[in-house]
Structures are given as structure tokens and as C-alpha cells.
């Protein structure tokens, strides 16, 4: 284990955040194994960086942003974002999975059809109900741009899943 003097501050952060961070990375790269490597690399990078904040409230978006950047690097290297399929672990109840998969297939396909930036914005926004200011910080854009990206993505999804809804937002 780590020496208390040199790394006591990061150990509780790793224990608290490794699980959600791997889940976020898996959503972004759609490959659980790659996501685990990305998260490991992210923790090492933030540990090595003298600029890393040590408070949980600021460390978490800092770590998430590192993960988003590493996921982008991976996707650029692979050059196959659109072709990647989501390799997920089996559930305890295959029937539940089958039913839910049927319901979510259309939405999942539609989400995968969004642009990379829109997917990042949607996943970060709804992963932990992050406010737009934090979404912007994590994906590296300003708050207004994050808001437009999410809004644009939702409008695309709505049009794709329910063509009869049209373009207008007058049905409130």
C-alpha cells in the first residue's frame, strides 16, 4: 500500500471514485477493459500533476475531465468511434435484460448516432445530474456551449425517436 506521507490524500479519493469513474469511461469508450486502463492512467496522471486539487468537490471534475480527454485520445487512435459496440457484462436476470434491451435499443442506437461531443455532453450531464457549469468544465467547453450541446442532442433524439413531434417545442 502507499506510504502515508506521500500519498495519503489520494487513497480515499481512489476508493471513493474508482467505480463511478470506470462507469463513466465505459460509457464513453464502450469497452470495459479499455475503460479500466483509462481510469488507471487518469489516476496516475492526476497523482503526478502538481496542479491536481485535493478536495473531493474539485478533484472529481478534474479527474472526470482527465478521463474524458484520455477517452478522446483513445477514440482518435482507434478511429472507430461509430463502429464500436458496447460490451457490457451479463446481468443476473437475462429476462430483465432482454426486456429492457428491447425498450432501449432504439434510444441506444440514437445516442450512439450523436456526435462525439454531444455524446460526451449527454453522458456527463445525466451520469450524475451534473449542472451545465460542471459539464462544461469536464468536457472542456464553456457553460453555454455545454447547454447547447445537451439541448441539441436531446432535440435530435426526440426527432429520431418520435418523428411526429417535429422540430418545434410548442407542445409544452
Amino acid at each position: 500500500m502507499l506510504q502515508p506521507a506521500e500519498s495519503s490524500w489520494i487513497e480515499p479519493l481512489v476508493l471513493a471514485l474508482y467505480r463511478p469513474t470506470i462507469q463513466l469511461a465505459t460509457l464513453l469508450v464502450r469497452d470495459n477493459t479499455v475503460a479500466q486502463d483509462i481510469v488507471q492512467e487518469a489516476f496516475v496522471r492526476v497523482w503526478l500533476s502538481p496542479r491536481t486539487p485535493r478536495e473531493m468537490s474539485t478533484f472529481r471534475p478534474w479527474l472526470y475531465r482527465t478521463v474524458v480527454n484520455l477517452a478522446r485520445d483513445h477514440q482518435r487512435r482507434q478511429g472507430r468511434w461509430a463502429r464500436l459496440r458496447f460490451g457490457r457484462a451479463a446481468s443476473d436476470n437475462p429476462m430483465d435484460v432482454a426486456e429492457r434491451r428491447e425498450a432501449d435499443t432504439a434510444l441506444g442506437d440514437a445516442v450512439r448516432g450523436l456526435s462525439r461531443r454531444e455524446q460526451e455532453a449527454v453522458y456527463v450531464r445525466f451520469f450524475e445530474d451534473a449542472p451545465f457549469e460542471e459539464v462544461g468544465r469536464i468536457i472542456g467547453v464553456r457553460t453555454g456551449t455545454a447547454r447547447v450541446l445537451v439541448h441539441r442532442a436531446l432535440a435530435k433524439l426526440r426527432r429520431q425517436l418520435d418523428p411526429s413531434s417535429g422540430n418545434g417545442m410548442t407542445d409544452s
Binding site: 474508482y18 467505480r19 470506470i22 462507469q23 465505459t26 460509457l27 470495459n32 458496447f86 457490457r88 457484462a89 446481468s91 435484460v97 429492457r100 432501449d104 434510444l107 441506444g108 445516442v111 449527454v122 453522458y123 445525466f126 451520469f127 445530474d129 436531446l154 433524439l157
Partner: peptide
């Protein structure tokens, strides 16, 4: 979409 992301997240084994 929120439900979808939560469901996808819940399925990811860590």
C-alpha cells in the same frame, strides 16, 4: 435519456 444512462451505468461491472 436519464433513465437510459442510469440503466447503462448500472450494468457496468467494476
Amino acid at each position: 435519456v436519464r433513465d437510459y444512462v442510469e440503466a447503462e451505468r448500472a450494468q457496468i461491472r467494476v
